[in-house]
Amino acid sequence: MTTTVPIVRQRGWARTFIRNPAGVFGLVTTVALVSCALLSIVWTPYDPVHTDVLSKWHPPSSAHLLGTDNIGRDIFSVLLAGSRVTLQVAVGSALVAAVVGVVFAALGSLTARWFREIIAVLIDILIAFPTLLIAMMLASALGGSIMVVIVAVGISFGVNVGRVSRPEIRRVSRSEFVTAGIAAGLGPVRNLTRHTLPNVAPVFIVQLSWCMAVAVLAETGLSYLGYGAPVSTPSWGRVLAELQSYIGIHPLSVVWPGLAITITVLGFNLLGDGLRDATDPRLGRPEVITA
């Protein structure tokens, strides 16, 4: 009989996580993003879509914290409202990626061996599709939208999750409690949902926080190219695109949205790193980290 190390849920992973300043930074930024998004539903200092040509290009002041843009919108209000799009894209992509990842994981562990090999080859092919290209293909058929960004990031990162979790799933499905489950008469699907998936959940959660980082970058890139958020929606990527022509005269205005994006991406990345170090230090960073 092969001896496999039983998977014991590590005690005190939360304590390990809290002691890691990088992970805490990630958690704080994530909470801040959620708070900004929720706050912007009920309150922003000014109407983020209200244009007022008379008050364009105000410098940062107590009235306009980050100044106003080329059409007189309050930049702080626009960024606050834009955090909603960012959060939507991040959470939406993570959900799609989770579904895609579980499907690939299930197909890669429950099916016949020859089918598993096909899935493995298919994953290697799908990984070669850059997220941005998937999104642009979808945009050329359906037109650009936030949904396109979510689906594209979700699919491409879900494939990645499927690949990264494959060895984990294989390891767990060889362990004794899964064998015990089979002996007790559990079907393959129930055994997967009851025993295997909960035990690979740490891998999934870590991967999904990195997925959110990729999603934020993808939203920026696609909205910049004009295939993400629609014109009327305040979004961080769109703001960058709109202010681009003025960087020579008002360079400070593009600093804020870029800073917001960078901090958010860094936050999700560090959150993932912190969770990985706290739950399973053996796991590596995903290979696909470009958006």
Binding site: T220, Y224, P251, V254, I261, T262, V265, L266, N269
Partner: peptide, 29 residues
């Protein structure tokens, strides 16, 4: 390096344009 890896490439481009093209005038924007 962790922070720079989180920078969206379009924003990095804008900042470099501001510094090296608009500010110092070394390169065309």
């Amino acid at each position: 390096s962790q922070a720079i890896a989180a920078v969206p490439v379009v924003w990095a481009g804008m900042l470099l344009v501001v510094v090296f093209a608009v500010g110092l005038g070394w390169f065309p924007p």
